[in-house]
Design a binder for these strands. Structure first.
Length: 379
RNA sequence: GGGGGUGUGGCAGAGUGGUCUAAUGCACCAGACUGUAAAUCUGGCGGGCUUGCCCUUCGGUGGUUCAAAUCCAUCCGCCCCCA
């Protein structure tokens, strides 16, 4: 079976949601799936063994960050990223395209590629589509991404069009570079659709990417500040143009509510920094809504974060204790909160997959939302 | 007993006649975070409302002055040095 190939198991009778699997040489991924982000080759604050016990099936790493530090030579010597960080399940690397967006002030874009100034020491580095492919081959993840420009929001039509077309030309170069050797036997290359919030641009991008032919397709350039409705509109525009027999990946998404909306619209894969970053900042996701564990109301609350949660944090520690750890700036809270949030997202996807098996997606979604949005206000 | 110093918002600590409800940090109270330059960032932090203004604040009291956290007197507290 081709690495990165998608198998549709069951389609919802209620909406576009799909239950399926993505094949990789390091294992099969049940979809819809949430992929925790481990930019520097580590899901911040979460040891690999806990990541495994959370049920995470695949995690991300980032080309730009690992290229700068420790350097791809070291990762190669280690035997690839999975040997390096002891994660032997599937992995996906982002191309550095998002850094073109986030490092806006210290990068310069040309047709050839992107010149970055290292955020670590200021040194200059150049990423081209070809270079990004080489780096991602060296890192050795199972799924790798095309080098693109993650178009900022808001973007003028002209900018969005030029940016999307540049990403198309880069995608062609990525594909050419990727298939130069036999990497495709163990790695899959996914294309990324851009076009900001403009219907014709999104359609053009989707059509041309599909015509070019990739193992899977990602929707990029979302969750960059646009309203929720715009994001959902973009999925609705792009999804019908994507082949049913390929995985669809919504990049950088998201919040629990976004995962439901994405799955409902036919998305199979999601990644987001939110469970870890927000965890480090005290925000916790629970079946009864979000809460900030730092807040005074939890000082004497000796119950777990989420009554129904099976994570080590909820099994072992109370809100009052976690509140204390945060106030005392004890580093343990970084791990405990990140871990809980990872479990929450993974369990959420499990619940979603189960509802698809039973073909009760919409009812389950409704039930989730009614608890998630109403419970905390009532109490 | 002699000499010197000091007292400012929850804490530390600036300010030494008007531009002072009083810098800054901490603490505290909230909010944000979406392919990670993030254990970060933002806002609030005496009271009232008609949100611009009014009232109350710099150990206590009493003065000087158009004007006092700032000057004077006095009282109270604390600290240091010498006996």
């Amino acid at each position: 079976m081709e690495c990165g190939s998608y198998r549709l198991i069951k389609k919802s009778s209620q909406c576009k949601a799909r239950l399926g699997q993505v094949y990789t040489s390091r294992g099969v991924i049940d979809t819809p799936v949430f992929m925790p982000v481990g930019t520097q080759g580590t899901v911040k604050g979460v040891a690999t063994e806990y990541l495994v016990s959370s049920g995470a099936q695949i995690i991300l790493a980032n080309s730009y960050h690992l290229y700068l530090r420790p350097g791809t030579d070291i990762i190669k010597k280690a035997g690839g990223i999975q040997k390096f960080n002891s994660w032997d399940k599937p992995m996906l690397t982002d191309s550095g395209g998002f850094q073109i967006f986030s490092l806006n002030d210290i990068r310069k874009l040309t047709e050839e590629g992107a010149k970055f100034q290292s955020h670590i020491d200021g040194s200059t580095h150049f990423f081209s589509p070809e270079k990004s492919m080489q780096i991602q081959k060296d890192i050795g993840a199972d799924i790798i991404m095309c080098f693109d420009e993650c178009t900022p929001y808001p973007a003028q039509y002209k900018y969005a069009k030029d940016s999307m077309e540049l990403s198309l030309r880069w995608a062609k170069r990525c594909k050419d570079e990727f298939y130069k050797d036999d990497s495709f036997e163990t790695q899959a290359l996914f294309g990324i659709i851009q076009g900001s919030i403009y219907e014709d641009l999104r359609k053009q991008s989707a059509r041309e990417m599909v015509a070019m032919g990739f193992t899977g397709y990602a929707i990029g350039g979302v969750s960059v500040g646009e309203p929720k409705e715009e994001k959902e509109k973009v999925i609705d525009i792009v999804e019908p143009l994507l082949p049913q027999d390929k995985a669809r990946y919504l990049m950088g998404v998201g919040m629990p509510e976004d995962l439901w909306e994405g799955v409902e619209r036919g998305i199979d894969m999601f990644d987001c920094v939110i469970p870890t970053r927000n965890g480090r900042n005290g925000q916790v996701f629970t079946s009864l809504g979000k809460l900030n564990i730092r807040n005074a109301e939890f000082r004497e609350d000796f119950s777990p974060l989420d009554p129904g949660c099976n994570c080590p944090t909820c099994k072992g520690y109370s809100k009052a204790y976690l509140n204390h750890l945060v106030r005392a700036q004890e580093s343990l809270y970084l791990s405990l909160l990140s871990l809980h949030n990872i479990y929450f997202m993974i369990n959420l996807m499990l619940k979603i997959r189960k509802s698809l098996e039973n073909d009760t997606f919409l009812e389950t979604k409704k039930e989730f939302f009614s608890k998630y949005y109403n419970s905390r206000e009532k109490s």
